[in-house]
């Protein structure tokens, strides 16, 4: 799985997750996706928030005619499920509001879904993930070339985000080593962590690397691409913006993985207003601060750069 994350024709998969619900994952997916499409990229957005799907609402679609349900229930091909939007080079694959729950998806269905996502003939697939850290959500997050997490400046969102990133990394380590034939080793050591003096995930990874040189090589290679793009949504002041800088610092020290603070979006009523009016923000409210901040986020993610933060400290 880890080695197949290249979209057909050198495109990129972007996945937007983050743990807590209501932080604006769907907003970030829809607005960054639209931004890419406006720049001429062929874009498909997939709503993987199974059970709580509402990506279509950000494009003024009230009741999608087709949805992922057909993929799971009758095996319709993913490429036949796209729904048109206002832009000719942008389409959606809407999620399902009713019939299925995330944990009822079978492993084989999941792999089939991932295979078909890779085969979509576009430049960018954007995946909107649901809340929580369920294995299916994490696995979808991990197939992405750009892993984006969204949070708001509040303690529960921050807490859930740590949990989400930690579980993603743990799963990545486990899946990677499983692929190389070390299926049980991670869990085995983790279960006996006290006797090994391991207190957290970073210790575990360091222990694995120090104990087995071939595992070091594997993890160094495979984790090189594990890079998180951080987006802080609904910021109200400079202190909120600087939270992103602090989170980057803590996450780096806590898990030892690279974090890029890609940007922030200010709190603005125009976001819910645009949804209510059934108008996509990035097509109808381009002069607003939040639209410009979304543009910056897209630039930074594409170029692997970070946002400029104001002076002062939080």
């Amino acid at each position: 799985m880890a080695n197949t994350t290249r979209l057909a024709k050198e495109g990129e998969i972007w996945a937007v997750g983050g743990g807590k619900g209501g932080t604006g994952k769907t907003f970030i997916t829809s607005s960054t996706g639209t931004t890419l499409a406006k720049r001429g990229h062929r874009v498909v957005m997939v709503d993987m928030d199974i059970g709580g799907a509402n990506l279509h609402s950000f494009f003024g679609i009230s009741r999608p005619q087709k949805s992922l349900t057909s993929f799971f229930e009758s095996g319709t091909r993913l490429s036949d499920l796209t729904v048109d939007t206002d832009l000719p080079n942008m389409s959606l694959i809407t999620g399902d509001i009713h019939s299925i729950a995330s944990d009822t998806i079978r492993f084989s269905q999941k792999l089939k879904l991932f295979r078909q996502i890779m085969k979509l003939n576009v430049q960018n697939v954007l995946i909107d993930l649901g809340a929580g850290s369920h294995a299916n959500t994490l696995d979808t997050f991990l197939i992405a070339d750009r892993m984006i997490i969204v949070l708001t400046p509040e303690v529960i969102a921050i807490e859930n985000m740590y949990h989400f990133v930690k579980n993603s990394l743990f799963r990545k380590v486990k899946l990677t080593l499983k692929e190389y034939g070390f299926k049980e080793i991670v869990q085995h050591i983790w279960d006996r962590r006290q006797s090994y003096g391991i207190k957290n995930l970073k210790d575990l990874i360091d222990y694995l690397k120090d104990s087995f040189s071939y595992i070091r090589t594997i993890l160094d290679n495979e984790l090189a691409g594990f890079r998180i793009h951080l987006v802080v949504n609904m910021v109200r002041n400079n202190q909120d913006i600087l939270l992103g800088t602090s989170i980057k610092s803590v996450l780096t020290k806590y898990l030892g993985v690279p974090i890029l603070y890609s940007g922030y979006v200010e709190y603005n009523d125009v976001v819910w207003k645009s949804v209510r009016e059934r108008k996509q923000l990035m097509l109808n409210y381009t002069a607003t601060g939040c639209a410009k901040q979304v543009e910056t986020i897209v630039d930074n993610i594409l170029n692997g750069r970070e946002v400029n933060v104001p002076g002062g400290y939080a």
Binding site: P153, E154, V155, I158, E159, Y162, K199, N200, L242, L243, T245, S246, I247, S249, V250, Y254, G311, G312, Y313, A314
Partner: peptide, 23 residues
């Protein structure tokens, strides 16, 4: 600024560090 920010972050309490204070 970076010095003051980091000193405050790791020297006091903050909503960034509190959720994983045990780490």
């Amino acid at each position: 600024n970076a010095y003051l920010r980091l000193r405050k972050l790791y020297g006091g309490t903050s909503i960034v560090l509190d959720p994983i204070a045990e780490e």
